[in-house]
Design a protein around this nucleic acid. Structure first.
Lengths: 167, 167
DNA sequence: CTAAACTTTCAATAATTATTGAAAGTTTAT
DNA sequence: ATAAACTTTCAATAATTATTGAAAGTTTAG
């Protein structure tokens, strides 16, 4: 496999995996392109490489910046803006995990808590609703906590030793 | 909040979260409904409760069965089929994690491995592509392994003690 | 065997989501 | 101040994905 083929394969694969971490295709592809680029890219270059419109590029770059994984770079002497992505995978994972947790998981946990806290009227169906949503709440909270702690590397040595034991 | 409101809220919230675990809205809603039901439900009952068509119900129930989280139940004396979902959240999480890994994560890991294994022609851009995709490959593989092991509870005591340390 | 009860399939359609491109907006150089 | 260089916005449109419903298929009771 040659460079160009490998590059295209990477961008399209990582792009289609976007759904998995909750972003759209164009967004994921732009991030992929920046991730393997050896230098900051301009909007022009991104449009050209990915064959997408100016508007699309602009909107998706903005979203990537909102996620905190792409930043503007000022190149001296250049009028236009250049963009780079976080190059460290650990750091990238941290940002993504944090954002997903904040945007999607935390709000759901809140609703599960509310639903599981309704008054028990003694009927079987209410008991079941409370029991099941409570179980889901606990699971979601544990998963969210673990993910964040692991990814934040606040307990790096634990993670490392866990991995040794687990593998 | 009364039973009906709480139930509707749960079904619509959990339904919209479907994207997070990679399934569509109707599928997630059917699963939610079964998850808090005190008895197996027929297709008729599901259609009625969720206001969706027979075809849609049939197709999505099939998919849920493919995922291994819904099963047909035969009720003696009844001609029609009844459905139940896995009621244990741990078991549910196990199935979901396993399926997502198999369907989405494993294939991507494979491609990352291929891409990161291209011949190093000495150019800077090739070196960068190899370096970055290799880092992503290692991260994805570690995350996938951890998730599966944890969710499979093969090392339950480790998970438990980890949680104590981490929380 | 065959009619009723039930389920599945799938082409048509609807709903949702992504993308374009051109006009409006902003910044910088002179 | 103004014109060129560049970016953003957003209504229109395209692409994708989900849903319907009716016909075809299957199973069971008698």
């Amino acid at each position: 496999m040659e460079y160009q083929e490998a590059k295209d394969k990477f961008i399209s694969t990582w792009g289609s995996l976007g759904t998995l971490w909750g972003i759209n295709k164009a967004m994921a592809q732009i991030q992929s392109l920046l991730f393997i680029s050896t230098k900051p890219l301009s909007m022009e270059e991104i449009m050209e490489e990915l064959k997408i419109s100016r508007g699309n590029t602009s909107m998706n770059l903005r979203q990537l910046m909102d996620w905190g994984i792409v930043t503007k770079e000022l190149v001296p002497g250049e009028r236009k803006e250049f963009f780079t992505t976080e190059k460290d995978v650990q750091e990238l994972a941290r940002h993504i995990a944090k954002e997903r947790s904040r945007r999607e998981i935390k709000p759901v946990i809140k609703i599960l808590k509310d639903v599981s806290s309704i008054k028990d009227d003694g009927t079987e169906k209410t008991k079941e609703l409370i029991k099941q949503t409570k179980a889901l709440h606990d699971l979601a909270e544990t998963a969210d906590t673990m993910m964040n702690k692991i990814v934040n590397q606040e307990h790096n040595w634990i993670t490392k030793s866990l991995l040794k034991l687990i593998k």
